[in-house]
């Protein structure tokens, strides 16, 4: 088999049986890790209860993912997060576990309900956990993240973003709330506070949170990125459809766009309707 021949080159010969067994063992570990990662993310039941009509288009590049989504409710406010950790696969998944655990800790402690401050605190925790002090030789891992907090009467929403914006489609218009241009984690500049945007929301607003996996995917006839403008247009085109249908269109569009190209990053899009 050409593949097996190639894999033996340079790293010494491994009997085919042994390599196969090792591969199976790694895959079994990854499958189990996938289960753990899924368990840490909200269940369909919880998503349904807190978001109502919604969809999650979640397409990891590998078995486990650096993208994750998270929702919770505290003091009748709904917290929604779509995040994209540096890397994908195992390293991305490890960061995602850190992110989920910090989100749980910070939001559930009730020390603050301001979206910007929550991101500030997650950043501190990541910097502390990864011993990030701004030196050139240390880990630069972190995450891009969009956080929405919907108030109890669902008339306003707070948003804070680390590189990832939020889109709201209302009356055939897509409103983009821009994110701060910095990650949750160490950056070149001294830490700046994340901005909390207070946004008025109305019934039937469609809100979309996402990672950059979808717009950054290569494909199409020229093998180029999907890009944000077509992504926005696609959301505008489909926003009036029901959520499951939107999910299916997004998925089909992406699969057709990708064609034979390799998936470059994890893909995550969350959509929900304000009711």
């Amino acid at each position: 088999m050409p593949g097996s021949k190639k894999s033996n080159k340079g790293s010494g010969y491994s009997p085919p049986g042994q390599a196969k067994a090792a591969n199976q063992e790694i895959m079994a570990s990854l499958r189990y890790a996938e289960l753990i990662q899924k368990a840490l993310m909200p269940s369909d039941q919880l998503l349904k209860r807190l978001l109502g009509e919604h969809f999650i288009f979640f397409m990891p590049k590998e078995v486990i993912s650096g993208d994750f989504y998270w929702v919770t409710q505290k003091d009748l406010q709904t917290y929604i997060v779509a995040a994209d950790c540096t890397g994908h696969g195992v390293p991305g998944a490890l960061m995602s576990i850190l992110g989920i655990s910090f989100l749980n800790e910070i939001v559930k402690s009730g020390r603050t309900d301001r979206a910007g401050r929550i991101l500030n605190r997650i950043r501190e925790k990541i910097m502390e956990a990864l011993h990030q002090t701004g030196n050139f030789d240390e880990s630069k891992d972190g995450m891009d993240l969009a956080l929405c907090i919907i108030n109890r009467d669902r008339t306003s929403m707070q948003f804070a973003g680390a590189n990832n914006p939020v889109y709201i489609v209302r009356n055939e218009t897509l409103i983009e709330i821009k994110a701060d241009k910095m990650p949750v984690g160490i950056d070149a500049m001294f830490e700046q506070p994340f901005t909390a945007h207070d946004i008025r929301i109305v019934k039937n607003d469609r809100v979309y949170l996402f990672s950059d996996g979808y717009p950054d995917q290569f494909g199409g006839p020229a093998g180029k990125k999907f890009k944000y403008r077509p992504f926005k247009q696609l959301l505008l085109d489909i926003h009036q459809k029901d959520m499951q249908e939107q999910h299916d269109i997004l998925k089909e569009t992406m699969i057709s766009w990708m064609g034979d190209n390799e998936q470059v990053d994890d893909i995550l899009i969350m959509g929900f309707t304000i009711t």
Binding site: R117, N120, R121, R123, E124, K125, I126, M127, E128, A129, L130, H131, Q132, T133, G134, I186, F190, E191, Q192, P193
Partner: peptide, 18 residues
Amino acid sequence: FSTLDFKKHIIKKRTGIA
């Protein structure tokens, strides 16, 4: 002080303070 202001104006150091 917020943690950020504490780091920036008091200890004048970049470090994660959880």
